[in-house]
């Protein structure tokens, strides 16, 4: 019966309705937020000030810029900080602002300052919120069932950690970051582990979304059978996870800068497109459900 309800756009017909407002720029904001905060978290852990700075700049310019371009009234953006008690958008902006403030102050302190570590840890906590809040934002929307799953924040967190690890490896191979021997040996294994975990989470998400009601099923069909199936399987699964995993596994720590750059680009492509496609396949339920004869 569910298949007889049409997927409609702006027609005056009752049916499943695709959301059209959150797409490219919001996906970019999510992407830059996760990559930047992931890089910041990993850089604090690896004690790389340059990595921290690049992470902060990605969040400030990438995420902040995408949000400002997206807002209908960007000059009123400060108003979005007024309701952290109930709105995940508000909480995200607070977390982002505090992360940037604490992060930049920590970096500007002289080496050996006793304030560095407390500020860096506070900024890491805020960066963690920046990485996962968009998952909670999507989950808190009851209207679109495929987003309404507890796996969404988990997926955001692991994608952020994967993006951060990939960026650290990339910056290390370019010579921007110096790591001690044990970290240099450890990072490729962390990357492979995160890739496997992310692949499992994406598969679990897909299996779970089959049973999220008729609108969730409609979203699932759009993603794996409909117009978004090719980019999903080619870019998200193929390039973003499987190719990256194989390359990381085969090339490993011996990989040259070119190979690492290729792995980084592939990973970031998969990272961007998973959230872009998940936004695109968001489907509203029909207002009055089924019509029986």
């Amino acid at each position: 019966m569910g298949r007889s309800i049409p997927l409609v756009e702006k027609e005056f017909v009752a049916g499943f309705r695709q959301q059209t407002e959150w797409a490219g720029l919001i996906a970019s904001a999510f992407f830059f937020g996760k990559v930047g905060s992931g890089l910041f978290i990993m850089s604090v852990f690896l004690q790389s000030r340059l990595g921290m700075l690049i992470g902060l700049l990605i969040v400030l310019c990438g995420k902040g810029g995408a949000h400002m371009l997206y807002l209908g009234r960007p000059l009123r953006f400060w108003r979005a900080m007024s309701r952290p008690g109930s709105s995940w958008v508000s909480r995200g902006i607070w977390a982002m602002s505090l992360m940037l403030a604490a992060g930049f102050i920590a970096i500007s302190l002289p080496p050996g300052s006793p304030l560095f570590m407390p500020l860096a840890i506070f900024a890491v906590i805020c960066a963690f919120v920046v990485a996962v809040y968009d998952g909670f934002l999507l989950t808190s929307s009851p209207a679109i069932p495929i987003w309404n799953t507890a796996l969404m924040p988990v997926m955001c967190m692991f994608y952020a950690l994967l993006g951060g690890t990939t960026m650290v490896l990339f910056l290390k191979h370019l010579g921007f970051i110096q790591l001690s021997g044990k970290f240099t040996a450890l990072l490729p294994s962390v990357e492979i582990t995160l890739l496997v975990v992310n692949l499992l989470i994406v598969l679990l998400f897909l299996v779970g979304s089959i049973n999220t009601g008729s609108a969730g099923r409609e979203s699932f069909d759009l993603l794996v059978k409909g117009p978004y199936a090719v980019p999903f399987f080619a870019l998200v699964i193929g390039v973003g996870l499987v190719f990256t995993l194989l390359m990381s596994f085969v090339a490993g720590p011996r990989a040259g800068a070119g190979t690492v750059a290729l792995i980084t680009v592939a990973d970031l492509i998969g990272h961007y497109f998973i959230f872009f496609l998940l936004l695109k396949v968001g489907v509203f339920k029909p207002v009055l459900g089924f019509l029986k004869i």
């Binding site: 959301q19 407002e21 997206y70 209908g72 009123r76 958008v89 929307s141």
Partner: peptide, 23 residues
């Protein structure tokens, strides 16, 4: 005068009855 056009309400409304006025 308070709305910033973030459209969080648009995706949260199960009835899909919010409209964004493009610039």
């Amino acid at each position: 005068d308070k709305c910033i056009g973030c459209r969080a309400c648009y995706v949260a409304c199960p009835y899909n009855n919010r409209i964004f006025l493009k610039r």
